[in-house]
């Protein structure tokens, strides 16, 4: 799982360079995120623009990262239609701040 991170306007923006976060990649995603969030920025924005698909394992991994990061905040950006659908159906869109686009 390839991630890239940069600080923009005080937020750590982490982009996922993978088109799927699923049962096959959820553990790897969590491990890579654990390394990426060592940067002490108070807000982390997860840029999901390149992620076309996320299943419930992927959703669980994003929630796990949110808990790892607490009390710092995990926000999400640029959800594809399928990813947005999973967050909406499970109502997990209610626990994240979701930005329509990634910070530029």
């Amino acid at each position: 799982m390839d991630l890239s991170a940069e600080v923009r306007d005080g937020a750590l923006v982490i982009r996922v360079h993978e088109d799927r976060i699923d049962a096959a990649s959820a553990i790897d995603f969590k491990d890579r995120m654990r390394e990426a969030i060592r940067d002490p920025a108070p807000v982390v924005v997860l840029d999901l623009s390149r992620v076309a698909f996320l299943d419930s394992s992927g959703l669980g991994a994003v929630v796990a990262v949110m808990k790892l990061l607490a009390p710092r905040k995990l926000e999400l950006a640029a959800l594809s239609p399928t990813v947005a659908k999973v967050f909406r159906l499970t109502r997990m869109d209610s626990v994240f701040t979701i930005h329509p686009e990634a910070p530029r």
């Binding site: 419930s56 959703l59 669980g60 929630v63 499970t90 626990v95």
Partner: peptide, 21 residues
Amino acid sequence: RSPHPGDLPQGGFGWFLIRSL
């Protein structure tokens, strides 16, 4: 059954999603 979002569940969504769709 749908897990409660406020509990920050990390699983248990599978059959809820299947039955929803």
